[in-house]
Design a protein around this nucleic acid. Structure first.
Lengths: 265, 265
DNA sequence: ATCATTTGTTTCACTGAGTAAAACACAAAA
DNA sequence: TTTTGTGTTTTACTCAGTGAAACAAATGAT
């Protein structure tokens, strides 16, 4: 038999996997080098639980193609330029769009509210993906839609974690009033951004759409920077104190899940 | 015998390669998907000259690990989020630093002049790597050094290909006078930038260091954007007309070589 | 409807590629 | 010196990877 068993032997009778072991091992090498670069051959081998011979030949193959590179003294290994080139093809947003949907679906199912995945693009917020809740009065979100950075839960959170230069340019620019609750006073906004930054999440109320709340949490990328926000949005009337707390918890948890995938589990 | 022969049979007697074929094939799949995404299984197979079975199992393995992803209808394949995540670890500059040195060395050896690899960082130029020429009166360059964007061959070229917003912020800011030949008049600078943009290269004379020339060409990345500049620099007195022309040609060629590696050969 | 093609998937027997272990050369430290 | 480490190379065994061919499910042409 040429097929290897599934890694999980519990799921029923005789599932087969078409995984090809040598390739899987090579991928493990790449991931390990991603987590801890500049490792020596033997370090890698023991780290991966493989023999030196194997790791040696895997590295040799990966190096031939530029997926791995040795340092100048040929002593340690790290990821190669081809990873960067190919990775750029996917892009950070592409990666988010592959990782987030499943988690967004789960969050929507658990809460019944709208779920938004938002990134910053220059001085605006861009909805990368959305899930419509069940009770859903239709709100803001539509994937591909651009919005302001200074109103709305997810957007404001992105602003809070953005470069100070970006913050100032937004605060300097014209601040449109969307609802009676939109905050347009720069100092008041600065205060809010500061609070978001320290608390690590944000609850916005009626500031973009009147009658709508939005509970947002940050998604972090490789360097630890905030690269996107995940938010729950719905009708303000439904946001009693208990829901507020549980929503915060759920959004934080889901955002952390996405972060984990984006920088390594 | 378990070792496969080297791909080049010409280099002497019986060289062996430790390449492991299954892994090499997997890498080929990744590169092909990088060049032409959203391909179907059979298209990939014929494209790569491999059996459907093989490609199927390679893809399955790569997909299990997130290096490849299928679209929603499970019909076509593309690179997965893990490529993006791992690629970010290397970074664009990291990739340049792996690719450029060999080509920079060759260019230095051929011309005997200083060679600089420069990227833009915000409103400044950053020398990623440099090679000292043979005649070399010591000039500007030192790797890791930050400089202005509006003077020096490589820097000005980067400015010429930068976002208009960036150009304006540089032109608005204070423009220091480095030599009698430094151009500090915004309109004159705009004109120069325009000319660089259309010609696709730049020759700077005595504008940053008095008595020094700099011949620069753009390096392009995945999207076709200019991500860095490669430049030859030396003493102005040596730059007669013949050298000027051949230097332009050589820099353009070397820069193109790097570009090719950065976006696919 | 029926047939013809094409897709992705699965099977299977053969064998040579991938593997582990052990030997190797070299360098740095003890 | 010897020791202990490194990366590299060799080896024999065997099972993982392979190609060919069969397969079901779509899709399109007749």
């Amino acid at each position: 038999m040429t097929l290897t068993r599934d890694e999980d032997p519990s799921d029923g009778p005789e599932r087969k996997s078409y995984r090809i072991e040598a390739v899987a091992r090579a991928l493990s090498v790449l991931e390990t080098l991603g987590e801890r670069p500049d490792q020596t051959l033997t370090a890698l081998a023991s780290d991966l639980g493989m023999t030196k011979s194997i790791v040696f030949r895997l590295l040799q193959t990966l190096e031939e193609r530029g997926f791995v590179q040795r340092d100048s003294q040929r002593a340690t290994f790290a990821l190669g330029y081809r990873m960067s080139v190919l990775g750029e093809r996917v892009g950070r947003n592409g990666a988010l769009l592959q990782v987030a949907p499943a988690i967004m679906d789960a969050l929507r199912d658990k809460t019944g509210e709208n779920v938004n995945l938002i990134v910053r693009e220059g001085l605006h917020a861009l909805a990368l993906a959305t899930r419509e809740g069940f009770h859903s009065i239709r709100i803001f979100a539509q994937s591909g839609r651009r919005g302001p950075l200074y109103a709305g839960g997810g957007s404001t959170l992105l602003l809070a974690f953005a470069d100070p230069a970006v913050q100032e340019r937004v605060l300097a620019g014209p601040l449109e009033t969307f609802t009676p609750h939109t905050v347009t006073h720069p100092d008041k906004l600065r205060e809010i951004l500061q609070r978001i930054h320290t608390k690590g999440y944000h609850v916005a109320l009626n500031d973009l759409d009147d009658g709508a709340f939005s509970v947002a949490a940050p998604i972090r990328g490789v360097g630890g920077d905030v690269i996107a926000s995940l938010s729950l949005a719905g009708a303000s009337v439904r946001l009693d104190e208990a829901r507020r707390d549980s929503y915060i918890e759920e959004v934080l948890k889901s955002a952390a899940e996405i972060s984990a995938k984006m920088c390594f589990a």
